[in-house]
Design a protein around this nucleic acid. Structure first.
Lengths: 261, 261
DNA sequence: AACAATTTGTTCGTATGTATG
DNA sequence: GCATACATACGAACAAATTGT
């Protein structure tokens, strides 16, 4: 904190609250990474800013250069930072919103101007049933396994823009609520917190389709209007499918954004 | 190659042609990474196979452990490998098709059964012009800059399934051909080879729309039929936009596939 | 044009911790 | 408990690229 000095600084990033002791029990490079990412998302280090050099940063955070480099490498791979010799390490300003590393609610609805939309989630149905053959196949389950089915709406500024239909192996989520009111909004976060399931990869199959009557009604559009169809499968670290979902999105005023590296 | 012995091996990966001298002028860890990735895509190391330990591998390839670890870390981050203590390093079998690292023609059309489609590319138009305000904005160019416009069709089994409209800053690609016949099929590969432009990230805005008459005709579908709209922007390592494209895909028999980590 | 200084990139080596069989 | 394999952490030296003198 060093309250004795005030230094607005020219274009260089200044200290946030580095040199505070790092938490234990997690890798130091990860703690360093989180601290830097936090400083960026908080706006302490803005887009285009150049960070202090490796030696200075590592010294100020009390870790070896190699440890700091690991953290910077991860953030660079995630697209948050860009590094060039002599120029230094600069904040790209590209949002880390599309990486599973940083967000459990990784959804990515933007408006036509490119701004991220904050979507409210409303669960409208929960049911338990024996898996259909298609579900059994998609989730790699045994014969007769039970599944949880969830229907949800994503709402932006009062308008429903996406309809979700999730299918989850019931075995993975014992004690999952049976009423829509009690359902968690952040499904993947809940899976991580309540059942220790960490999503390692998500695969999406995208298509355009004409809206079926029930979907059209839920989204408040005409039947047959074009909707974005997203078939999503989530995998854990062992590469087993742990969730399957079918999304229908109304995209006359929104875009589904995707970033590839 | 060691032709004196033949060893089918139990479940362990055996030598491919490691210990061959590594190429110069590129980082050694990248050469190691490429060699391992190649062995996997060639089928030498199959899905589920466990690779030799770090020390053994590094020794057999003539690099330090840290160098090998860098290569393995990259492949793990890309989803090609999975590493666990004691168990070792195993091949996941998940395809690295959606990573910019491995494919210049990164396009990702699959059929409804999930199989990757090999799409033929046909360039149907090339033009040079002064950038429109929208293009100038999307590509972050100066007033009055010249752009290259490319129209292409993606064809799978004789049927056009996607229409591409690319816009590129003409300044970046001097000597680009002026006739469709001479245009390169792999645009990003060409940009890398001919102009040294390396694509570091791609952002896509996806939506569903009703097909306009000209697009409908190009794709051989009815006007107004739902099409998948993909607005794509490619960035180089300095985070500058270097290409912009508008894709229209016919998705009655195909899916556009996307993998997130 | 040549050169020096700075900053990241690569490579090496080593030591210790930790999870797993 | 022990051996094994990866994970973390440290440090050091040199290479390569870029900027400014």
């Amino acid at each position: 904190m060093s309250p004795s000095r005030y230094d607005p600084g020219p274009n260089e990033a200044q200290d946030t609250d580095l040199s505070a002791p790092l938490p234990e029990s997690i890798p130091r490079w990860r703690a360093v990474e989180a601290r830097i990412a936090e400083a960026i998302t908080r706006g302490d280090w803005k887009a285009g800013m150049v960070l202090p050099g490796e030696t200075a940063l590592s010294a100020s955070m009390g870790v070896a250069v190699g440890t700091l480099r690991r953290a910077l490498a991860e953030l660079t791979a995630a697209g948050v930072l860009s590094r060039r010799r002599k120029t230094g390490t600069v904040v790209t300003g590209r949002a880390p919103r599309h990486s599973l590393r940083f967000l459990f609610d990784y959804y990515r609805l933007h408006d036509l101007d490119g701004r991220l939309c904050r979507a409210e989630t409303r669960t409208i149905g929960i049911a338990r049933a024996v898996a259909t053959p298609a579900e059994k196949d998609a989730l790699d389950m045994a014969e007769g396994s039970e599944v949880l089915r969830l229907q949800r709406l994503r709402i932006v500024e009062g308008r429903a823009v996406m309809h979700d239909h999730f299918t989850l192996p019931a075995r993975l989520l014992p004690g999952f609520p049976d009423t829509p009111e009690a359902a968690p909004d952040l499904l993947y976060r809940h899976m991580s917190d309540a059942a220790g399931i960490r999503i390692a990869a998500i695969r999406e199959h995208l298509a355009a389709a004409a809206a079926a009557p029930d979907i059209a009604e839920a989204l408040g559009i005409a039947a047959g209007a074009p909707v974005l169809l997203i078939e999503e499968t989530a995998f854990d670290e062992a590469n087993s499918p742990v969730a399957h979902a079918l999304h229908h999105a109304e995209t006359s005023a929104h875009r589904y954004v995707n970033e590839i590296r």
